[in-house]
Computed example of a mutant assay.
Amino acid sequence: MTDDLSVDDLRRRLPASDPLVPGRVHEVLSAVADDAEVLTYDVPARSITEVVRRSYAQDEPNLLPLVEPLEPLGDALVLVCQVESGPEIITVLLRAADRGFVSATAHDRSVGAQHVTAAELTALLRSTQAPGAAEALTVTLRLAPEERIGIFVQGAHPTARTLLIKYTLATENGFDVRGLHAFADALLALEAQTVPFCIVTSGTSMTTVALGDERRSVIAAMTVHGIGTHPQPTEKAP
Rank of each mutant, 00 (worst) to 15 (best):
A189D: 15
V21P: 02
R99E: 12
S127K: 01
M206W: 03
P231I: 15
H230V: 15
G203F: 08
E172K: 14
Y56Q: 14
E214R: 13
A97S: 14
G132P: 10
V116P: 05
E84A: 13
P231W: 11
A133F: 02
L187C: 11
V209L: 06
H157F: 12
T162E: 10
P19L: 09
L143R: 06
I165S: 10
V92R: 00
G179E: 00
R99L: 15
E146Q: 09
I219S: 02
R109N: 07
A36R: 13
N62F: 15
T207W: 09
V80D: 03
Q154L: 13
G112T: 02
M206P: 05
G228Q: 04
A113Q: 10
V195W: 06
P19A: 06
D75H: 04
A45L: 09
M1A: 03
G212S: 09
P131T: 00
G100W: 05
A104C: 12
I165W: 00
I89V: 07
S17V: 12
V111T: 00
P22N: 14
E172Y: 09
L14W: 04
A160D: 10
E60C: 13
L143Q: 05
R109Q: 10
R178A: 08
A220K: 01
V92E: 03
T234P: 07
I199W: 14
P69T: 01
N62G: 10
G150W: 11
T122S: 09
A96W: 02
G86Y: 00
Q193A: 13
F175V: 09
V21H: 12
S30W: 07
R216H: 14
Q114P: 05
V32Q: 12
L10M: 10
L20G: 08
A220S: 12
R95K: 14
L39T: 15
A123S: 09
R216L: 11
V21E: 08
S217E: 05
L124Q: 06
E50C: 02
T117D: 08
P233H: 13
S55K: 12
V7A: 04
D34I: 07
M206N: 10
P72W: 01
S205H: 10
V67S: 02
L64G: 05
A113N: 01
I219N: 02
M222Q: 07
T138R: 08
I151N: 04
V78A: 02
L73W: 05
R109W: 03
E146A: 02
G74Q: 07
A134T: 07
A104N: 09
E191S: 07
S103C: 14
S110F: 04
